[in-house]
Simulated scan of single mutants.
Amino acid sequence: MTDLEGTQASSVDDAARSGFSLSALLGVGAVSALGLTWFLVSWLVLGSPLTDAIGETVGSLAAILLIVSIIGAARASDPTGRG
């Protein structure tokens, strides 16, 4: 019998395998839908050239991801644990 046969997996291993939470998946879906919508509005409705519409979309998504990152960092550093 080897050293590893009798040991149980830790809860950290189980949490790492569980994947994304439902709220994370909904957030990713919402951001993706907003990005696609903004691209289509910019390109088809406003008549921007394709490269400008792509650039606007990438810039908007970068701003959204920056905001999400700041909120996540603030929640992770909250000493009260309420975030």
Rank of each mutant, 00 (worst) to 15 (best):
S32E: 08
A16G: 07
G83V: 10
R17C: 10
S11I: 09
G6W: 10
S42A: 04
S60W: 05
G29E: 09
G6I: 06
Q8K: 09
R82W: 10
D13W: 08
S18D: 15
L4N: 05
Q8D: 08
V58F: 12
L22M: 11
W38Q: 13
V28M: 13
E56V: 00
I67F: 04
S11A: 15
A53I: 05
D52G: 02
D3S: 14
L46N: 06
M1K: 10
A73H: 02
G19I: 09
A9M: 11
V28S: 10
I70Y: 00
L46Y: 04
V45C: 03
T57M: 06
L25Y: 11
G81Q: 11
L44M: 03
I70W: 00
A9L: 13
V28C: 09
D14N: 10
D52P: 00
V45H: 03
A53K: 05
G19M: 12
S18C: 13
I71K: 06
G29V: 09
L25K: 13
D52S: 06
L25G: 15
D52Q: 09
E56Y: 00
L61W: 01
L22D: 14
A15C: 05
W38R: 10
A62E: 02
G27N: 10
S60I: 03
W43S: 01
I67Q: 04
D13L: 11
L4D: 14
V45S: 04
G59S: 02
V68Y: 10
S60D: 05
A74I: 05
I64W: 00
D3V: 12
S69W: 11
L46Q: 09
A76G: 01
S18R: 15
V58N: 02
A62P: 01
L36S: 08
T37Q: 11
E56G: 00
D78R: 04
L65T: 10
A33K: 04
D3P: 07
A15T: 09
A15W: 14
T57L: 01
S48R: 07
R82F: 13
L22V: 11
D13C: 11
S42F: 01
G59N: 01
P79W: 00
P79G: 06
R17W: 07
G35Y: 01
V12K: 08
V31D: 01
D52A: 14
D52I: 09
I54V: 14
V28I: 14
D13T: 08
T2S: 15
F39L: 13
V45N: 02
V68E: 12
S18I: 13
L26E: 05
G72Q: 06
